[in-house]
Design a protein around this nucleic acid. Structure first.
Length: 714
DNA sequence: CCGTACAATGTTTTT
DNA sequence: CATTGTACGG
């Protein structure tokens, strides 16, 4: 059935680098395949090779669908496949489940009564809408214990993703709200109606609605089967029942589907992911070929040993037998710092020491359970001028000022998005909840160009009058997104200054970021959808001045699938990791354990486990912290304890040398210098504490004198 | 009816 | 400790 395409693509040498099991996975082209891949077993490489192999065999790239956990990783894999083949693979469809569903719904959503310009709601929008409905139903008056908007949003999403009834969910996880069951039920019904009536979809709707279409229309299943003849799904252990169903229907006609995952790395239970999905796959697709990748290429034996202890203590034992190439390395380190401040200092010292030894900063990562665990460290790194990026913190769209701007864009595209109308109306001078409500009432009866005079008459706000004029001049389908954004910004700036005058400069940087992003898009729809589907991380932009690739700080969830030379896992104390929230529930504790397993298996060579002795507790001051059970249960001979007080001598020397070198006289333009990592280069420029060196190996590079070890050669 | 000053309140992980 | 709700003055 598959014919080899002429002989232009002859180079299959990439297959030879695979081991037996990997190769089998790559070459099993037809029928359902389940790959159980342990941590570091070359899972990504296998997927990439299989993509390349399919294209090599003559499968048109547009007939291949690759579903991954982030759009970034899909893009990366497709690029890598292209490199292997030396052929463009861009036409492979790749992305997350949500982005695929979004794509499909823009095309087929009309079957459920959705126009192709429906608005996507992010978590914050969902909360706002639930809150709006809660108030309008009168549930917020005097009902002190009625759940608040965040909780409501969590309950709703869990209910949908786990496919369980509200009553079951409440009695299992939120017994304190059981008395409100009928009210919450009512609220959720209103919520669903509201979304439908106003062309809105939340994350869950993307899955539900696409699944609904697949279920209802056999001819579409057929059509989709023709379009995506080969389906691959990465990180299958983190899919939920809905996603499993979607795959079942999409692959129904040809059954060419490969899913890859590792049950011991399932860490998304909180959003309904069920690792049983992976075990049930052969039941949904009988005759599934099961392939296990058990050889670990990533980590040293010492790191693997520690990881294996963790997983062997798991309640549910996994049938896996990870073996490595017996690559010897250093035992993992355990550091008991006095408090978070000392831990941060230790890490900063160590990072600089490693960099002085020639390790790239981007080869080092600091991992933690919750985004806020790295606050102290961020302060320390900033103080020392160590560039870093943080993954898993606040997203661009989660900041109020960005949300404001986006709301303007949204109403241009979907005038029925009254949620966004509400937001922008409240921003304007002399408009409060009541006026906003009145305006929306008018808009609902008569959409904009018609209700213009009526609105001008009713609303006493100059700002609003100006906005109306602007609204009518913008052509959202014709102008470039960046141009539209520009016009909106011109209008919004004074409002912005008024509301956020305190952190004006900090926030303006995000706006600049949004502008830069908008320039990559041709249509406003795509731009807005992407902001929700692929939320942009909001990092400290101050580090952007460094040419060097930054150190990585990341939540463990966001570190999935990645690896580094050296990994620090911080905040290893009870209540933080495992998180306080999971302590009462055994299932969630098991998930925390898998999370710890994921964290330690990110490291290739060196692993540092860091736990403070004391932590600051709000009302109580400094108190003793209990070390994480995940550390306590590891026999001490699996790690070596290291004092956080003293760093190794050679490093101290370099610090003093470089500190003397901060004085302007140390280097001058034209000097020849040597850097431990970049090699030799010529000094181009000295700007305050920074120095620009033209390295033979990598061209002009800006370095911070205080923290760089430079040797004068000439 | 708007805007502001103050009190209360709980705190994970992501598409 | 930062966000969210409430009370009050303009």
């Amino acid at each position: 059935m598959l014919r080899r395409v002429k002989n232009t693509l002859t180079d299959l040498s990439f297959l030879e680098e695979l081991n037996q099991a990997q190769r089998e996975a790559v070459e099993s082209i037809e029928g359902p395949v389940l790959v159980i891949a342990g941590a570091g077993s070359g899972k990504t490489r296998t997927l990439v090779c299989r993509l390349a192999y399919l294209v090599y065999l003559g499968v048109p790239p547009e007939n291949i669908l690759l579903l991954t956990f982030t759009r970034r990783s899909a893009k990366e894999m497709i690029e890598r496949a292209g490199t292997l083949l030396q052929k463009d693979c861009d036409r492979i469809t790749g992305g997350t489940f949500h982005s695929l569903c979004h794509l499909m719904l823009r095309q087929y959503g009309h079957l459920l009564g959705y126009s192709s310009t429906f608005t996507l709601l992010d978590r914050g929008d969902v909360e706002d809408l639930l809150n709006l409905l809660k108030t309008s139903l009168g549930f917020s008056d005097n009902k002190k214990r009625f759940p608040k908007k965040q909780t409501l949003a969590s309950i709703y999403s869990k209910m949908i993703n786990k496919l369980i009834s509200l009553e079951d969910l409440l009695s299992e996880e939120y017994p304190q709200f059981l008395e409100y069951l009928p009210m919450i039920e009512r609220l959720f019904t209103e919520y669903q109606n509201y979304k439908r009536e106003h062309q809105l979809m939340d994350y869950d709707d993307l899955l539900i609605n696409w699944l609904e279409i697949l279920k209802r229309y056999p001819q579409i299943r057929q059509e989709i089967g023709e379009r995506f003849k080969f389906i691959m799904v990465d990180e299958y252990q983190d899919t939920n029942t809905l996603q499993g169903e979607i795959i079942r229907y999409m692959a129904e006609s040809h059954r060419n589907v490969m899913v890859v995952g590792d049950d011991s790395q399932s860490i998304y239970g909180f959003r309904g992911a069920n690792f049983r999905n992976i075990l049930d796959f052969p039941k949904i697709f009988p005759d599934t070929k099961i392939i296990k990748l058990e050889q670990n290429y990533r980590s040293t034996q010492q790191i693997l040993d520690l990881a294996n202890i963790t997983i062997s203590n798991a309640k549910w034992k996994y049938k896996k037998n990870l073996f490595s190439l017996k690559r010897e390395g250093e035992k993992p380190f355990l550091i008991r710092a006095f408090d978070d401040t000392e831990a941060s200092r230790f890490i900063a010292d160590k990072v600089l020491e490693l960099r002085n030894k020639g390790l790239k900063l981007s080869q080092i990562a600091v991992l933690f359970r919750s985004a806020y665990h790295s606050y102290e460290l961020e302060v320390e790194l900033t103080k020392r001028g160590i560039p870093f990026v943080k993954y898993g913190g606040l997203k661009l769209l989660e900041s109020a000022h960005i949300k404001d701007l986006v709301s303007f864009l949204r109403v241009l595209l979907n005038p029925h998005d009254y949620l966004s109308w509400n937001r922008i109306l409240l921003l304007m001078e002399n408009i409060g909840p009541r006026t906003a409500e009145r305006v929306i009432g008018i808009l609902k009866q008569e959409p904009l160009p018609f209700s213009l005079s009526k609105l001008k008459f009713t609303v006493n706000s100059r700002e609003f009058q100006r906005f109306l004029e602007l609204f009518l001049t913008i052509r959202p389908y014709e102008e470039a997104p960046s141009g539209i954004l520009g016009q909106i910004w011109e209008f919004y700036e004074p409002i912005f200054q008024r509301i956020y005058y305190e952190e004006y400069h900090k926030r303006v940087k995000d706006i600049e970021g949004l502008f830069a992003l908008s320039e990559k898009y041709l249509t406003l729809e795509e731009f807005l959808a992407d902001l929700v589907l692929e939320p942009i991380e909001l990092f400290e932009q101050e580090n952007a001045t460094f040419d060097e690739e930054p150190l990585v700080l990341s939540t463990i969830h966001s570190a999935k699938g990645l690896e580094w030379h050296t990994v620090f896992v911080i905040s290893l104390i009870e209540g933080r990791f495992p998180s306080l929230h999971s302590l009462k529930n055994e299932e969630e504790l098991e998930e925390e354990r898998r999370l710890f397993y994921v964290a330690v298996t990110r490291a290739r060579e060196q692993l540092y486990l860091v736990a403070p002795l004391m932590i600051y507790v709000p009302g109580e001051g400094k108190t003793f912290a209990k070390i994480s059970r995940f550390i306590a249960e590891i026999p001490p001979n699996y790690y070596q304890e290291l004092s956080s007080k003293k760093t190794s001598e050679p490093y101290k020397n370099t610090l003093t040398t470089s500190e003397t070198s901060t004085s302007r006289s140390a280097f001058k333009v034209g000097d020849l210098v040597r850097h431990p990592h970049f090699g030799e280069g010529e000094v181009l420029e000295i700007i305050g504490e920074k120095i620009k060196v033209n390295f033979v190996s990598r061209g002009p590079t800006l370095l911070h004198l205080k923290y760089t070890y430079l040797e004068l050669i000439s």
